[in-house]
Amino acid sequence: MSSHSIFLKAGLCAGLLLYFSLTASAAFASPSSAQEEVTLVRLKPDPNAVSLTAQMEGKLQVRQGCVYLITKKHKLPVLAIWPSTYRLLSPRGKPTGVLDTSTGWSLEFSVNGIFGGGETKIKPTDMLDAPIPTACGGTMAFVEFSP
């Protein structure tokens, strides 16, 4: 057998192996998962609203489709209730954090930040711009970025 035919057979085998590995990975690739819908629980606009001064440190995290604050001190998820000027930060259509449209301040999920706010013992349904999704609950706190 000539060295030319050995290289030809080796090249053919490598080409077939590459073809089968590409088609197999395409055939068994999982379908792209649907993007999770994220809700930012916000207060209705209120010109008489005052900022809460208690300071909390922690990270924002999406859980059950809502934005929670995981405080550094207690490490427990707190459902964040934001002022009306806050929006999801969504470059390219995917939520990556929270933006205050009145100041331009933003914070991405899983990044440590300082927040003003305070826990609420009652569900402030009449103060919200939309109902809290049923999957979201637990301890709630009014939250805003702190300078």
Rank of each mutant, 00 (worst) to 15 (best):
M1P: 07
M1N: 09
S2Y: 06
S3E: 13
H4M: 06
K9M: 13
A14T: 15
G15S: 12
L17R: 04
L17W: 09
L17F: 14
L18F: 14
L18G: 10
Y19N: 11
Y19D: 04
F20T: 13
S21K: 11
L22V: 13
L22E: 05
L22F: 11
T23Q: 06
A24L: 05
A24H: 14
A27F: 00
A27C: 05
A27W: 05
F28T: 01
S30R: 08
S32T: 15
S32Q: 02
S33F: 02
A34W: 09
E36A: 12
E37K: 08
V38C: 01
T39L: 00
L40I: 13
L43M: 07
L43E: 06
P47I: 08
S51R: 10
T53P: 03
T53G: 09
A54Q: 14
A54H: 13
A54F: 12
A54E: 03
M56G: 07
M56H: 13
E57L: 13
E57M: 10
K59T: 14
L60A: 08
L60H: 04
V62F: 03
Q64S: 06
Q64C: 10
V67P: 02
K72W: 01
K73E: 02
K73A: 15
K73H: 09
H74T: 08
H74V: 00
H74R: 12
H74E: 07
H74C: 07
H74Q: 12
K75Y: 07
L76C: 01
L79E: 03
I81T: 12
I81M: 02
I81N: 08
T85S: 11
Y86G: 01
L88E: 01
S90P: 02
R92T: 11
R92L: 09
G93M: 03
K94V: 08
K94R: 15
P95N: 03
P95C: 07
T96H: 02
V98R: 00
V98H: 02
L99W: 01
D100P: 07
E108H: 04
E108M: 03
F109P: 05
F109S: 00
V111N: 02
V111D: 01
I114L: 07
G116Y: 01
G116H: 01
G116D: 05
G117P: 03
G117N: 03
E119G: 10
T120W: 06
T120C: 10
K121W: 03
I122D: 04
K123D: 05
P124F: 06
D126N: 14
M127S: 15
L128N: 05
D129R: 13
P131M: 12
P131E: 15
P133Y: 04
P133A: 08
T134Q: 11
A135D: 12
G137W: 05
G137D: 03
E144L: 06
P147E: 15
